[in-house]
Amino acid sequence: MTMLTKPVEKRRIPWQKISHYGLLILLSIAILLPIYVIILTSFKRQVVVMSKSPVWWFEPTLNNYNEILQNHNFVRHLISSTYVGLVSTVLTLFVSSWAAYAIARMKFFGRGVMSNATLLVRMVPPVVLTVPIFGLWRQWESLWVNAPWHMRYVEWVNNSALCTAQGDLLDATCQIFADGLTDGRLGLILFYTALNLPFVIWLLVGFIQQIPMELEEAAIVDGASPFQVFRQIISPLMRGGYAVAAIFTFRIAWNEMILGLILTSRRTYTLPVKTTLFIDQAGVQWGLIMAMGTLILLPPLLLTFFSARQIIQGMTAGAVKG
């Protein structure tokens, strides 16, 4: 009997732990289910997609993927999305890190205004910008789209062997200045940069403030200019901040649809815009949407699994100071 009491004491069922894990698993299922459904559905035949009762087991098919690859210029829109995402991310990082450095470390007239204004414009609802951007940018672009040098450039792009490979990256680069602000990638790049700047400046100010001042002071004593200090001391120490900022910026640009719809045309639609075009009067082409959706999902999915730590850092930095 003495033998029995002790092990029983030790093997008490850890109810708290079980309920803890149970709750977490339940929540995870709730979160993953829609993602599972979208991936699953993308491999279904049209008949199965439209079936009246849920189908969990079926013979998978690549029909939907073949269709979007062959008949819907998937690659072209992929390039458009990637291009806009990457260029606007790089642009945002450069521009915002300079501004963040000035706000975090320099004293100048208008600093307070600048930092408060940054926060205020961060809250502007994108839908408010649709109308003015649609109207205003169209006016601006007409100023240079009709300029002689621009026409000559377009002519060169259309004839140059370097640029005419349809839909490939080089072509996208050539076209970027040939297109106007409102029917190509240039306007979208500019818009996403503007949209992301306030948050990223805010984020990077926090990162810079955590870097000890002593390093910079020593460099200044040694006669370094502010530009050298930024490039050689601050920038290398900010890699963590840049990674967080890049994830958030790319995510916005990759996922956004409304301004994409307004600022691109048939040739330059980004992937989310292209996806919504599968909804029309004739109905919703669910199979194609799910295949498209799965492919759009992949980069954010991979980003999440490989850099969850940075994402959480960025999210909490948005709410928690520093």
């Binding site: 995870s28 979160i31 956004e256 989310p272 996806t275 999902l297 954010p300 999915l301």
Partner: peptide
């Protein structure tokens, strides 16, 4: 990691999948 997934997904994908 699983919990941040809904925030990383494109809003239009979220809307479309729930619509389905």
């Amino acid at each position: 990691t699983i919990f941040i997934l809904p925030l990383m997904i494109s809003p239009i994908i979220v809307g479309l999948i729930w619509r389905y």
